[in-house]
């Protein structure tokens, strides 16, 4: 059921945003970013899905007009998006470690030297 995928994707994105907005723990903020990212990945992969299609890997001789496969472009996009998501997590966790060293806390309510 592809509709369920779309609902789940937007639910995950919403859940991620909810975590970022409401959670005061920096690690939970990072988890929120990751969850939103998973939602986007699910959305991307669902867009390219054709029910009953095979993997889009063919040699020239195999490929004809009856070949029925899923759209390969969103899969490429998803791979890129996964890599970027990993970068986001790595970098934000590195920053969290630095913040903990400097501020002695990972509570966002106490990390606000820059304001006003």
């Amino acid at each position: 059921m592809i509709l369920l995928n779309y609902i789940a994707a937007f639910f995950l994105i919403g859940l991620g945003m909810y975590a970022i907005v409401t959670k005061y723990n920096l690690v939970k903020t990072v988890i929120g970013l990751s969850i939103a990212d998973y939602g986007v990945n699910l959305l991307l992969i669902s867009i390219g899905f054709n029910p009953g299609g095979t993997a889009p890997i063919f040699t020239w001789s195999e490929l004809d007009y009856n070949s029925f496969f899923v759209d390969p472009v969103p899969q490429a996009l998803t791979l890129t998006s996964i890599v970027i998501g990993a970068c986001v997590t790595a970098m934000s966790l590195a920053l969290v470690i630095k913040l903990e060293e400097q501020y002695g806390t990972i509570d966002t309510r106490q990390i606000r030297r820059l304001r006003g």
């Binding site: 986001v88 970098m91 920053l95």
Partner: peptide, 13 residues
């Protein structure tokens, strides 16, 4: 670091 983290969170959103 604080500025970078805020920028990262909202920038990634």
């Amino acid at each position: 670091v604080e500025a970078a983290f805020k920028y990262l969170v909202v920038g990634c959103m």
